[in-house]
Nucleic acid binder design. Structure first.
Ligand SMILES: [Mn+2]
Ligand SMILES: [Mn+2]
Ligand SMILES: [Mn+2]
Ligand SMILES: [Mn+2]
Lengths: 159, 159
DNA sequence: CAATACAGTTAGCCTTTGCTAAGTTATTTA
DNA sequence: TAAATAACTTAGCAAAGGCTAACTGTATTG
C-alpha cells in the first residue's frame, strides 16, 4: 500500500473548500446510490409493520392510500418484497412480515424515531420534522444517529 | 374549510406513536419522491460548478471519476441537463452552466455546506459527515436548514 | 504527420418505480 | 343469493439511472 499523494491543501477559512480527493468523493455518491436501493423497501416494511400493529392487518389498499401511489404499484412492490423474503401473503389476502422483514421493520422504525425526535428537539415544527425525517432517515449513519440521540437526550434533560 | 376529525390521541410515552392521518402520511412520501426527482440534477450541477471553480473547466471524464459512474452514464445525464436548460456544451467539449444551472448550483452548494457544517458541529467525524450530508441535503426543508444554522452558530460561538 | 492514447458519444441492454386500463376475486348489501 | 362494490392482480407503457461494447473525435508524441 502506497500512500496517495495528498494535493488537498489544509483548510482555510478565507477560500471555498477544496474538492475532496476523487475516490472519497466517489464514495460519497456511491453511499447515496446504495441508500436509494433499500430505502423504499424499508419504508414499505416499516409501514406494513405499523399497519399490523395499529390496525391489526396490512392491506394493499391501505398501503396505497398511505403511500399515495396506485394499488397496482403496491401490488408490484409487494411482489418484489415477497421475492426478497421480506413479506409473505396469499393472493388477495393481507400481508405479513417474515422474520427478516420484522427485523428490517424494527431497525427502520427505530432509526426513523430517532431522526424524528432529533428534529423536534432541534426546534423544527412537527409537520416539517415528519416530512424531513421520512427522507433523511435513509441517509443517516450509525455515527450520526448516535450524535442525534445524545443531543435529543441532552435537550429533553435540560427541558 | 372544515376541520379534519382528529383521531390522533395526545402523545403518550408508554405506547407507540399512532400513525399520522393518511393524507399527511401520503404527503410525507410524496415529498421524498419529489426530492428524488431533482436530487441527481442538483448533485451534477453542483459538481460541474465546483469543477469549473476549482479546476477551470468541467469535463465529462472528471465527472465520471468523481461520481463513480461510467462516462456513458455521464453523457446521457448531460443530455438530460442540457434538455432541461441547466447545462450548455458543444459536442466533445467541456461543460458550462446556464444562468438557471448556476442558480441551482449556488443553492445546492449552500444547502450542502450548511448540512455538512451542522453535522460537524454535532460532533460527527469529517468522513461520516461528508457521506451523510451528500444524501441528507436533498431531504432538508428550509425550516430545518434554519434550525441547523442556528445550532452551528451557537456551537462555534461557544467554542 | 502518423500512430497512439485519451475523451466523448451512441446503441442496446437491464432494473426500479411509477402510471392506466382491464380483468379477477372477495365482501357487502338489497 | 344475486348484484354491486371494493380489493387485488396483471398487462403494457414510460422515464430514470445504471451498465458494456463499439464507435468517433481530439490531443499527444515519436
Ligand atoms: Mn421510515
Ligand atoms: Mn422513509
Ligand atoms: Mn451536494
Ligand atoms: Mn447530494
Amino acid at each position: 500500500m502506497i500512500e496517495t499523494p495528498d494535493d488537498t491543501p489544509s483548510p482555510s477559512l478565507s477560500e471555498a473548500d477544496a474538492l475532496p480527493p476523487s475516490e472519497q468523493h466517489a464514495q460519497q455518491y456511491a453511499a447515496v446510490r446504495n441508500a436509494h436501493e433499500t430505502e423504499l423497501l424499508e419504508d414499505y416494511v416499516e409501514l406494513i409493520g405499523d399497519l399490523i400493529a395499529h390496525q391489526g392487518e396490512a392491506r394493499s389498499a391501505d398501503i396505497a392510500l398511505r403511500m399515495g401511489v396506485s394499488q397496482a404499484t403496491v401490488s408490484k412492490m409487494v411482489g418484489r418484497l415477497k421475492s426478497l423474503g421480506l413479506v409473505a401473503s396469499k393472493p388477495y389476502r393481507s400481508l405479513f412480515l417474515t422474520e427478516e422483514g420484522e427485523a428490517m421493520a424494527r431497525m427502520s422504525r427505530q432509526r426513523h424515531a430517532i431522526v424524528l425526535q432529533f428534529l423536534r428537539a432541534l426546534g423544527v415544527s412537527d409537520d416539517t420534522a415528519r416530512i424531513d425525517a421520512e427522507g433523511m432517515e435513509h441517509h443517516v449513519s450509525q455515527e450520526t444517529l448516535d450524535a442525534m440521540q445524545r443531543f435529543t437526550r441532552l435537550q429533553s434533560g435540560e427541558g
